[in-house]
Computed example of a mutant assay.
Amino acid sequence: MKHTQKIGYAGIALAALSLSLSTLAADPVTPKFTDKLSRLLQQEMRSVQSAMASIHVSMVTGKHEQVATKAQQIHDSFILKQSLTEQDKKDLMSAVPEGFVKLDKDFHRLAAGLTEAAKSKDTQKQYKLYNEMTGSCIACHSKYVSDRFNGLGSP
């Protein structure tokens, strides 16, 4: 009897947890973007995707300088920083919630850390930070871009 009670309580706790997590999912932000912002962000994301793939290969082959270069490029948000007007920045900030901005800042902070880990040739730290960056991508995409990445499920 006690064993079934424990399973029952665990099941109730898991159900409550998944219900509370499902309420954390935000409305997708992509429909709120102007055409220009949407285009720039997609271009930026393709650049990040390419850099992340390059970092992975460079990291597992011990090419620390290449890891540092690509991680720095991610940190600097090359395309957005050069392409956004003041109005674009206002449009972006009005389209995204605070949680989105926090995830973005954390992602760029991790990229800066990855740059430093690569410069010091600390492969284990690179691996840890790269995994955290990947987790950050998944968290953001599942919460704020669920209309494009519905295979990720709830955050």
Rank of each mutant, 00 (worst) to 15 (best):
Q49Y: 15
D76N: 05
K32V: 05
H56P: 00
M52Y: 04
T85C: 06
K63L: 08
S58I: 14
I79S: 11
S54L: 03
K90C: 12
Q43T: 00
T61S: 14
Q42Y: 08
A68S: 13
I74T: 13
H64I: 00
Q49T: 15
M45G: 14
D76S: 01
M45K: 14
I55L: 00
A71N: 08
F78L: 10
K63R: 12
E86L: 11
T61W: 10
Q72N: 06
A68Y: 04
Q72V: 03
V60Y: 12
P31G: 08
I79Q: 09
K63G: 02
K32N: 09
M59E: 03
L41E: 08
H75K: 15
L84Y: 11
K36G: 12
T69P: 00
I79E: 07
L40Q: 14
Q72A: 06
E86K: 13
A71P: 05
K81M: 05
M45N: 15
K70Q: 04
V57S: 14
P31I: 07
A71C: 09
K81W: 01
D76C: 00
S50H: 08
V67S: 02
M45L: 15
V48K: 10
L37P: 02
K32A: 10
Q43I: 00
I79F: 06
Q49C: 12
S54K: 07
R39F: 02
V67M: 07
F78D: 12
R39A: 02
F78W: 07
T34R: 12
H75C: 10
H64A: 01
A68W: 05
R39G: 01
T69V: 07
L84H: 10
I74G: 04
Q66M: 08
L41N: 10
I79C: 07
I74V: 15
D88H: 02
Q87R: 01
E86S: 14
K81S: 09
A51W: 03
K36F: 10
P31K: 12
Q87D: 05
S50D: 11
S47W: 01
S38R: 09
I79A: 12
M52E: 10
A53I: 04
L41S: 09
K90G: 11
T85G: 07
S50F: 07
M45F: 15
D35Y: 13
S47M: 03
G62S: 08
K70A: 07
K90D: 14
I74H: 04
R39W: 01
I79R: 07
D88L: 01
K70C: 00
D35H: 13
K32G: 03
Q43M: 02
I55S: 01
H64C: 00
S58C: 05
S47H: 05
S83A: 15
A51K: 13
K36C: 11
V60C: 01
E65I: 03
